[in-house]
Amino acid sequence: MKNRLEEIRRAKGIRQEELAKELEVSRQTIGSLENGRYNPSIVLAFKIARYFDMKIEEIFLYEE
């Protein structure tokens, strides 16, 4: 699944470490999410969306 996490994070001027700390996940998880190597659980996807005050589908792009 593709996502706009890196783009959104950079636009907000937040470092990976800061985002990881806020979401209580490892920095590697943020890196893997941004690279598209890892798809988050629905819980983490909600946490990310709430953190940026956005909808999940605005961050994570589902393509068939």
């Binding site: 996940v25 998880t29 890892y38």
Partner: peptide, 9 residues
């Protein structure tokens, strides 16, 4: 604790 409970880990 974060590393241990991290869902990807």
């Amino acid at each position: 604790e974060i590393e241990l409970s991290d869902e990807r880990n």
